[in-house]
Amino acid sequence: MISAPRHDRDYPDREIDCQEAMEPGFQAIGDCMREAGWQRGEVVRSLRRLMAADNMAQRENAKVEAELAIARAMIRAGR
């Protein structure tokens, strides 16, 4: 079971708490992959690539959101 953050606001150890909450899930993924015949290094590389792809998607989404906000502001301004 994944434990919730101590509270909604930011606090100094929030990232550590998040890592601790996620670790069992990553261990389970790794265990399933190794049982299927994948090597540890392959699993780790794949997880890293998935995280990198997610980070890239988040950056692209943020750019699109910023562009939309600018376009909406220009429309409201009558341009």
Rank of each mutant, 00 (worst) to 15 (best):
E67T: 02
G41R: 09
Q27E: 12
C32T: 01
R9I: 00
R48E: 06
Y11W: 09
A53Y: 14
K63P: 02
Q27V: 03
S46N: 07
A36Q: 10
R6E: 09
A57F: 03
A4P: 08
A21Y: 08
C18Q: 08
N61I: 02
A66L: 07
E35I: 07
A53D: 13
R79C: 15
A4L: 15
M22D: 00
R72E: 09
A71W: 00
G25M: 13
A73W: 08
S46G: 01
W38L: 14
E67M: 14
A28E: 11
A53K: 14
H7Y: 12
Q19D: 04
W38Y: 12
G78V: 12
D13F: 06
E23F: 15
V44Y: 12
M33V: 00
E20H: 09
I29D: 02
M22Q: 04
I70E: 14
E67V: 03
L50E: 06
V64L: 10
H7T: 00
G37I: 13
I16C: 00
M74F: 04
A69P: 06
D8V: 06
I29V: 13
E42G: 15
R48Y: 05
Q39N: 09
R14V: 08
Q27T: 02
G37E: 01
D31W: 11
F26D: 00
D17R: 11
F26A: 03
M74T: 01
A53H: 12
A21P: 10
I75W: 03
R9T: 02
A77H: 09
E23T: 08
R79P: 05
M74K: 03
R49M: 10
F26K: 06
E42R: 12
C32Y: 10
S46Y: 10
L68S: 11
R48H: 03
K63E: 13
Q19R: 15
P24W: 08
H7K: 10
D31R: 14
R45A: 11
H7I: 01
D10A: 14
I29T: 03
G30F: 06
A53Q: 14
R9C: 04
R48L: 14
F26V: 00
V43K: 13
E65C: 06
R79S: 12
D8N: 10
E60K: 03
R49E: 05
Q19W: 14
S3A: 07
R34A: 09
M33C: 13
G25Q: 03
Q39A: 15
F26N: 01
E23D: 02
A36H: 08
M51N: 02
P5A: 07
Q27S: 05
D10C: 06
M56C: 01
D8F: 11
Q19I: 15
E35R: 12
G78R: 00
A52V: 09
I75A: 10
R48D: 01
